[in-house]
């Protein structure tokens, strides 16, 4: 891991647990709901939320599809057992299969998006049932690359880990005692057998995090990234991905007509008044 990407995990934990506690309680809640996939990102969010709010105030929801890997379910259980959070298993098979049957030609992208959005429906329903806010699990790498489903796995009330690159997520997860099985396995959206993020993206998180750090945090130009040793094609591919996925990172633009328009000149933080 690049020295510049190394983080002080105690400080990160202090800031992120404080953030979760502050932003959930001032919204009038004391509990959190998290979709636990068995992967490292949701495991870390779960550990942080349990630390911030106490385990009994966190509901971890496992939402397998019938083809989901049994390892994912077991790894999620490891996180539940380790943290002592409340848990629930709600398979999405019965929710999504009718749509898959209606559109049998739907490709893997469509099917993956449908599953991600079905899980969002379950989480937001549990948000109301459990009385907790949905805590997000998207990291900085995937947000920048747009490697997520809009209104699916990216939907949340707050996101504690969205300013940590994937390799930093690994570092913090190790420090906070996320089970080894979860940390060491290849990251995967688990939409089909053998799928891995790195195969699909075409590069490793280790490599892309170093490049993203230069582009985003250090404001390197593409030419400077190439000078720093990254292949031109890789740099261009990543920069294009970042630009093309900007739409996933902002609220839909509202067409301005009046003198005061939400998003342009009606500006308030969400913490307004609290």
């Amino acid at each position: 891991m690049s020295a510049k990407l190394k983080i002080n995990t105690d400080l990160a934990k202090t800031i992120l647990t404080g953030f979760i506690h502050s932003e959930i309680t001032r919204a009038g809640f004391s509990r959190a709901v998290i979709g636990l996939s068995g992967g490292i990102d949701s495991a870390l969010s779960c550990v942080l939320a349990a630390e911030a709010l106490a385990p009994e105030n966190v509901l971890a929801v496992r939402m397998p599809y019938k083809t989901s890997s049994i390892d994912s379910l077991e790894d999620a259980q490891r996180v539940i057992s380790k943290t002592g959070v409340q848990s629930l298993t709600v398979p999405v098979t019965e929710m999504v299969d009718p749509l898959f049957e209606r559109f049998p030609e739907a490709n893997a992208m469509r099917r993956g998006n449908i599953m991600a959005r079905a899980r969002m429906i379950v989480l937001y329903d549990q948000s109301e049932a459990f009385g907790g806010l949905v805590v997000g699990t998207g990291n900085k790498t995937e947000i920048l690359l747009g490697y997520s489903t809009l209104y699916g796995d990216s939907a949340c009330a707050i996101n504690p880990i969205g300013d940590l690159y994937k390799t930093q997520v690994r570092q913090l997860s190790t420090a906070l005692g996320v089970p080894d099985e979860v940390i060491s396995k290849a990251p995967s959206a688990d939409l089909w057998a053998g799928q891995t993020d790195e195969d699909e993206l075409g590069f490793t998180y280790e490599d892309v995090d170093k490049l993203l750090y230069l582009i985003v945090d250090e404001r390197y130009s593409p030419a400077e990234c190439v000078d720093a040793g990254f292949p031109q094609e890789f740099v261009q591919k990543v920069i294009t991905r970042i630009r093309r996925n900007q739409f996933k990172r902002i609220l839909p633009p509202i067409a301005k007509l009046s003198n005061r328009t939400i998003g342009y000149d009606f500006l308030y933080l969400r913490d307004w008044g609290t």
Partner: peptide, 11 residues
């Protein structure tokens, strides 16, 4: 506002 998380114990 706190910013600049590194491996140092302070921002």
């Amino acid at each position: 506002p706190g910013r600049g998380l590194t491996d140092e114990p302070k921002l």
